[in-house]
Amino acid sequence: MSITQQYLRDTYRARQRGEAGPPAPGAHDWQVVRELRDHRRFRAVIAAHPARGRIRRALGRWLSRPRP
């Protein structure tokens, strides 16, 4: 059974019972991706890992600016 078939079956059952329908497949994918990214960043901070990638470059630019 595919995801779409399961979704349609669950929607049908919810309507028969007078309940709220389930969210559509893929409706919260980006939210899950953002939460996963935030969790990984949080774990890196807790483990005291140095910044990498874009964050490190941004910090390097900010710290290397000449002071007025």
Rank of each mutant, 00 (worst) to 15 (best):
I46S: 03
G53Y: 02
R54I: 07
V45L: 13
Y12D: 02
V33F: 05
R67N: 05
V45A: 13
E35N: 06
A44R: 10
Q31L: 06
A20T: 13
A27Q: 04
F42Y: 15
R67V: 12
A24I: 09
S2P: 14
R52N: 13
H39K: 04
Q5D: 10
S2E: 14
E35F: 01
R52M: 13
T11A: 03
S2L: 09
R9V: 10
D38M: 13
W62H: 04
P23V: 02
V33I: 11
R43N: 08
E35K: 07
H49L: 12
R13N: 15
R40F: 06
W30E: 11
Y12F: 08
P25E: 13
R17W: 04
A20R: 15
A20Q: 09
E35R: 12
A47V: 03
D38N: 12
R54V: 02
M1E: 13
R56L: 04
A24Q: 14
G21K: 09
R54S: 07
A44H: 04
P22A: 11
H28F: 06
Y7K: 07
A51Q: 01
G18S: 07
A48D: 03
R15N: 13
I46E: 11
I55V: 08
R40A: 08
H39W: 14
H28W: 03
R41T: 09
M1Q: 05
D10G: 10
R13V: 00
D10K: 15
P50Y: 02
E35Y: 06
R41D: 10
R61F: 05
A47H: 08
P68D: 09
W62M: 12
Q5V: 07
H39N: 08
R17C: 03
Q16I: 07
P50F: 07
T11Y: 10
A27C: 01
T4C: 09
L36S: 08
R67T: 09
R61M: 02
M1C: 07
G60H: 02
R9N: 15
A20M: 11
R41S: 06
R67D: 05
S2K: 12
R52G: 12
R40W: 04
R9T: 14
G60A: 12
H49W: 11
P66N: 14
A51N: 02
V32E: 11
F42Q: 10
Y7I: 05
Y12I: 08
M1G: 12
R61W: 06
M1V: 03
P23H: 15
R52F: 01
E35C: 01
G53S: 10
R67H: 10
R13F: 02
F42V: 14
R13K: 08
R56E: 15
P68S: 01
Q31D: 00
A58Y: 03
P22L: 12
T11R: 15
P68T: 01
T4M: 02
R57G: 05
R65A: 14
F42H: 14
R34Y: 11
P66E: 13
P25K: 08
P66C: 15
I46H: 03
A58P: 07
R17P: 00
E35W: 05
R61P: 03
G60K: 00
L59K: 10
R15T: 03
A48H: 05
R52S: 04
R57D: 15
R61L: 11
